[in-house]
Design a protein around this nucleic acid. Structure first.
Length: 446
DNA sequence: ATCGGCTCGCGCAA
DNA sequence: TGCGCGAAGCCGAT
């Protein structure tokens, strides 16, 4: 089922009666549980037209490097194969995504269907296309379990304010998506770039190659293998094991979700069917926390800036901006994991080597950088830079929210203390109390 | 080992 | 207008 609230007409009009339906893929790089794809298939069948797809591959995506592009290209490789099995040919074209979509539409689109991403740039791409297209454009939301605008129309203050709104709605949206066979097939649709060998194509792209690919394979096939493994082997222990950075207890699905290779609906339905406390904990992360980050980037004009943090948090940090810092490090020293703190260095190395830092360590990692930089603004910029450079899912809405949390976003005040003011403080004592931090340090030793 | 206090602002009850 | 309470904590008192 495709809920009406998922579908938004961005450019109204009557579809042409000839040509093809065009699916402009931006966010949903998959065929399973992709509402935009299924909507496009139904529209093509209704209009008795074929369906084709296009992806604009921009080498200029802000902050993206070889680590990110490798994962994206693996996703496109799988997408082309999986769409072909649905009789939908995919073209991958180098260039600005909305321009690529506009040019493809110019070849005879009756109607353009697209999906939804939640960053400023993705919104601007859609707006750019709306202004120039001369056929209808429909967006179908599939990266959120519940459409962002349905959950809330304003910036939520914290998880506790968005949670009841989500819980009220989620049973209406946690419903399977049925598929239809495409009736008409387009045979003459140029495929553009060859994505069968992502490594080869990656080398030719004029991007930042200084960060190598991470340690996990991208793409829809790997995503579903990982999901199955997670549900059968890890979900039962998830509620407790996910908080221990020395064991493999987290889902590792975040990057697949970020690149649209895994539908959050697929993951949510699989977890709910399995049940238990692990499923509850996972659905909290997958739906409540994830939609809270979409809410932040959608309803906050400065979601990626220090100035966008809550007023109480900025005020208290600025009151303490003149407090003495025992250690200060440059961005390069942090990047190279060259601090006096072996636990911090271990976390940094886990991230640079694998593309993932354990969630609990990420909080500690962020809090320490507040202590070790001259001003909170510099701490914010450094953390965001490090996160977006090395994390496989960097530049996801959860990147800005995760870094923002370190500075008090979606959190509450605590005891006043130097440097932090009333923003929550963390220290290595907590790591020692909660788990075997020495083991973690050994796991990620130099 | 466990517990209360720290501190702000939202949202609901009244 | 008052009141309860909140993603992951810390610290000192018992």
């Amino acid at each position: 089922m495709i809920h009406d609230a998922r579908v938004q007409v961005l450019r109204p009009g009557t579809p042409r009666r000839e040509g093809f339906v065009l699916l402009w893929v931006q966010a949903g790089v998959r065929t399973r549980d992709n509402h935009a794809l299924e909507y496009a298939v139904r529209e093509a069948n209704r209009l008795n037209l074929p369906l084709v797809a296009v992806f604009g591959l921009t080498p200029g995506y802000p902050e993206a490097n070889a680590r990110h592009y490798a994962y994206l290209l693996e996703g496109l490789r799988d997408l082309r194969a999986n769409l072909a099995a649905r009789d939908v040919p995919l073209r991958v074209t180098l260039g600005s995504p909305p321009e690529v979509a506009l040019n493809a539409a110019g070849e005879g689109a009756a109607l353009v269907v697209t999906d939804v991403g939640y960053t400023r740039l993705q919104r601007e791409w859609r707006e750019w296309l709306v202004d120039r297209l001369d056929v209808p454009l429909v967006q179908v939301e599939s990266e959120a379990v519940i459409p962002v605008g349905v959950v809330s129309g304003k910036q939520e203050y914290a998880a506790r304010t968005i949670r009841p709104k989500i819980h009220r709605l989620w049973h209406d949206y946690l419903v399977p998506l049925d598929t239809h066979d495409l009736k008409k097939r387009e045979r003459d649709w140029d495929g553009g770039e060859d994505v069968t060998d992502p490594t080869r194509l990656l080398k030719t792209l004029p991007i930042d190659h200084s960060v190598p690919p991470g340690d996990e394979e991208g793409g829809e096939t790997a995503a579903h293998d990982l999901l199955e493994d997670f549900i059968t082997r890890k979900l039962d222990g998830y509620a407790t094991r996910r908080n221990d950075p020395t064991v493999d207890g987290s889902s590792r699905l975040s990057a697949h979700l970020h690149y649209g290779q895994l539908s959050p609906l697929s993951a949510a339905i699989a977890a709910r069917e399995h049940g238990g406390p692990g499923a509850d904990a996972f659905l909290e992360e997958l739906i409540v926390r994830r939609e809270l980050s979409f809410n932040y980037t959608t309803d906050h004009p400065h979601y990626d800036r220090y100035a966008g943090l809550p007023a109480w948090a900025r005020a208290t940090l600025e009151e303490h901006a003149g407090d003495r810092r025992e250690y200060t490090y440059t961005r390069a020293e942090l990047d190279a994991a060259q601090t006096h703190d072996p636990y911090w260095n271990a976390a940094q190395r886990q991230m640079t080597r694998t593309g993932r830092m354990h969630n609990y360590m990420r909080m500690y990692w962020g809090k320490k950088v507040i202590e070790w930089t001259p001003t909170p603004q510099q701490a914010y910029d450094a953390l965001l830079w490090l996160n977006n450079r090395h994390e496989q899912d960097g530049r996801d809405p959860n990147s800005w929210v995760g870094v923002g949390w370190v500075f008090g976003l979606h959190d509450r005040p605590w005891t006043r203390r130097p440097i932090f003011g009333t923003v929550r403080y963390m220290n290595a004592g907590g790591l020692k109390r909660k788990f075997d931090i020495e083991k973690y340090a050994r796991q990620w030793a130099e």
